[in-house]
């Protein structure tokens, strides 16, 4: 049995293996630009000194408001506070024109999932970082990449899937049934 007879077979094998592990999974995602640049690090930490909940607030009824609306930003940035060009642009483009920026939300869950922040944060005392990682310390917004087929963000597809929820719940002995989290 000569290797040469299977040369074309193995070359096909090698090429598809290489492509299948590197290029193609990336091609599943497309990048969508954020409407403006934003540095969490500039707001939190020593420099900004703000807490997550200062902007990502809970409403009075306990529901989570998510990404803040323009009015929250405008509360401080009615005029540029610092000297960066991106801040200036944000004030000109959005605050002055009262145009709501359409942020792409990295961790937006599917419509059919019920994730109450109040149960996990207020009662469960979970830290934001537990699910959202070090997003709050990032100096610039990472690329928002959306799966071309599913339409979900890569952040959700990579670490905030049902399996991840279930793993945590199992660990704590909290899982009961599908309806616990599905709506």
């Amino acid at each position: 049995m000569k290797i040469a007879r299977f040369l074309s077979y193995f070359s096909g094998l090698a090429i598809s293996l290489a492509a299948g592990w590197t290029v193609l999974p990336q091609a599943l995602y497309k990048e969508v630009p954020q409407p403006a640049s934003f540095s969490h690090a500039a707001h939190t930490g020593e420099k900004g000194g703000m807490q997550c909940t200062d902007c990502h607030a809970f409403r009075t009824d306990g529901s989570f408001a998510g990404v803040p609306k323009l009015e929250t930003c405008a509360g401080c940035h009615a005029e540029p506070v610092g000297e960066t060009a991106s801040e200036k642009r944000f004030v000109e483009e959005f605050v002055k024109k009262e145009r709501e920026p359409q942020w792409q939300i990295y961790s937006r869950q599917p419509d059919n999932a019920w994730f109450p922040h109040s149960v996990h944060v207020t009662r469960g005392k979970l830290a934001c970082e537990g699910c959202h990682g070090s997003h709050g310390k990032s100096a610039a917004l990472p690329a928002y990449r959306v799966n071309r087929i599913t339409g979900y963000s890569q952040t959700v597809m990579a670490g905030m899937r049902m399996d991840d929820c279930v793993a945590c719940h199992r660990q704590r002995g909290l899982s009961h049934s599908c309806l616990d989290c599905h709506k």
Binding site: D61, G62, S118, V119, T122
Partner: peptide, 10 residues
């Protein structure tokens, strides 16, 4: 769900 969420908030 809504009742659970409201209870947790309180």
């Amino acid at each position: 769900h809504a009742a659970v969420e409201a209870a947790a908030n309180e």
